[in-house]
Amino acid sequence: MYNALIYKEWLKIRWAFWGMTLLSLLILTYVLLNIAYGMESVGPKNFWGFVILMNYPFFTDIQYIPVLAGIVLAFAQFSPEMNSSRLKLTMHLPAKENTLLFQMISIGFFLLLGLFILISVLVGTISGFYFPKEVVSFVLNTSFSWSIGGLVAYFLSAAIIIEPVWSRRLVLIPFSLGFLDLFISTGNPHYQLEVFFLFSGLLTSVLILLPAYHFKRGI
């Protein structure tokens, strides 16, 4: 049954997923070209100086990719379910509703996770080609919360889309934005916050059950 659900969810989100993957690759290419250009134009030692001594964020172009991907995937996956209340069909499938919902978001979660790991590996490889491992670790540490922010954006968007009552959506939206902002607005590493980000980020995955319950019970 899980396989069938994967199949259905994949049909909905594949174009969004490939689109976001392509966009990520384009932006990573741009990051790569940007470093190559910087190394060429100011010379390696000066470019290293910018990065190492002044923390020049040569990789900030990837800052908003995860959030964008999270929101786009949530829309691709859940707006067709809300269109004419198709979620009723899913809820009527012979399985526990909460299990179905968890399975649905697990599919988006794993796809996003894969995409973010790909982005991290590529941005790590690109940085590692030009810079020492200290810089790579700085880059990965800084972009870590952006990736978690992408997952949070996905979970929260899904919950907001599923919520049937507009007034409750309007409550969720500003708080979601405020929460998301903590993950993505910073361009700095958080050496002590990874665990907090990871934990609180994954915790938002259960948020979807409440609006789904509202949908289910028409309240």
Partner: peptide, 22 residues
């Protein structure tokens, strides 16, 4: 469901394959 609502993003074959698993 009222209005014969089904997963409209699926094809005839896909939707049969999907439901058959359940």
């Amino acid at each position: 469901i009222e209005g014969h609502i089904q997963y409209s993003f699926m094809s005839i074959k896909q939707i049969e394959k999907f439901y058959s698993a359940f």
